[in-house]
């Protein structure tokens, strides 16, 4: 009788561990897919390339409005402190940084000076000026 009780207890613990491990596995997998799917790095890359292409296609005097309203959602705390520097132009290099450990740069060939103004809501206002490029 004592032995039987012990066996039942072992089976129960094994089952519990089995279920916990399965749940942990599924949770990790879902978190991984959700993190990849949300595409923080992808968003930075997409915006950097989009802005570089916009600058390449623009002539001096062009004013562009770009809706980046999904950018604050990447890291709200970081965004609130750094939204003004989320998009930077250094020389002919556009850098989009939407989180603490992130950032993506892409170069453009158009020798213009883009002036950048980002609103807290993620609305980017871009003015293309002539001459040498400089930090926005």
């Amino acid at each position: 009788m004592i032995r039987k009780k012990s066996d039942k207890g072992t089976i129960l613990i094994e089952n519990v561990i089995f279920i916990i491990l399965n749940l942990a596995f599924i949770t990790i997998l879902i978190l991984f897919i959700a993190k990849q799917g949300s595409g923080e790095a992808l968003l930075e890359q997409a915006y950097a390339k989009k802005i570089a292409l916009i600058i390449d296609a623009s002539k001096t005097g062009t004013e562009i409005f770009l809706d980046m309203s999904d950018a604050p959602g990447v890291s709200e705390e970081w965004w609130n402190d750094n939204y003004a520097n989320a998009v930077k132009v250094d020389g002919n290099l556009v850098t989009v940084k939407l989180r603490e450990k992130g950032g993506y740069s892409y170069s453009f060939f158009n020798g213009v000076t883009p002036i950048i103004d980002m609103s807290p809501e993620g609305k980017l206002y871009l003015v293309i000026r002539g001459g040498e490029t400089e930090s926005g």
């Binding site: 002919n92 740069s105 892409y106 060939f109 020798g111």
Partner: peptide
């Protein structure tokens, strides 16, 4: 580069 306003330098 000067006349056409093109910068061919990259990352």
């Amino acid at each position: 580069e000067e006349k056409c306003g093109i910068v061919l330098s990259v990352e």
